[in-house]
Amino acid sequence: MRGHIILSHGSDSGPDATKVSVLAALAESLGWSTTRPDYREDDALGHAGSIDPRLARLGAAIAASPVPPVLVGSSMGAFVSGLASVDTPVAGLFLLALPARIPGYARPFAAREGVPTFMIHGYRDEVCPVDEAIAFARKAAIPALLLDDDHRLGATLPTIETQFRAFLAGLSGEPA
């Protein structure tokens, strides 16, 4: 096993959502173990109300990980992955369709400094403003890829897979 990856789905989605399923399959094909927490029960509490329960669920998954995990998140999953990294050591962050803030939640998005991080966002994201995501990436000096896609990033999934493969190779010290 190369390491462990925890993939967090977005709101109004589930652990079998397209992006997290495709990325989990890719990671497993490369020798990584994966976990996909189910946040659907938490999401019934609304966007702001779901964050703390999601953080608790993600924290339990991190604690159960055999090694500091790589956190992968889409939308709300990206938001909680970053916040969890501030509180717990992780091996990396791969963030998709990142909301830089959640209305009604006091804590803005944050991520642990010094952790290998990569962000992908769609120019046409109608849910999470691209300018806010870019501003976070600029402030945190993390690499970001902006794609001609909407919030779901469905049209660019092959590009996301390529970037994820390269990200994991970088963490493993291998050529992409």
Rank of each mutant, 00 (worst) to 15 (best):
M1D: 09
R2G: 05
G3M: 03
G3L: 00
H4I: 05
I5S: 07
H9Q: 11
S13P: 08
P15A: 06
P15V: 07
A17L: 05
K19I: 13
K19E: 11
A24V: 06
A24D: 06
L26F: 11
E28N: 04
S29H: 02
W32Q: 05
W32R: 06
T34C: 15
T34K: 08
T34W: 12
T34D: 09
T35G: 02
T35S: 15
Y39S: 03
R40C: 03
D42S: 14
D42C: 15
A44M: 08
G46A: 07
A48C: 01
A48Y: 02
A48L: 04
S50Y: 00
P53T: 05
P53F: 02
L55D: 14
L55P: 12
L55F: 13
L55M: 13
R57K: 15
L58Q: 07
L58E: 09
A60Y: 11
A61P: 10
A61K: 11
I62K: 10
V70N: 11
V72E: 08
S75K: 01
A78E: 07
A78Y: 13
V80E: 00
G82V: 02
G82I: 12
G82P: 09
G82E: 05
G82K: 00
L83H: 12
A84E: 05
S85A: 01
T88W: 08
T88N: 11
T88L: 06
G92I: 09
L93M: 10
F94G: 07
A97G: 15
A100F: 01
A100G: 14
R101Q: 13
G104C: 10
Y105N: 04
R107V: 14
R107Y: 08
P108R: 09
A110S: 14
A110F: 08
A111F: 11
A111E: 07
R112D: 06
E113D: 14
G114H: 08
G114M: 00
G114Y: 13
T117Y: 02
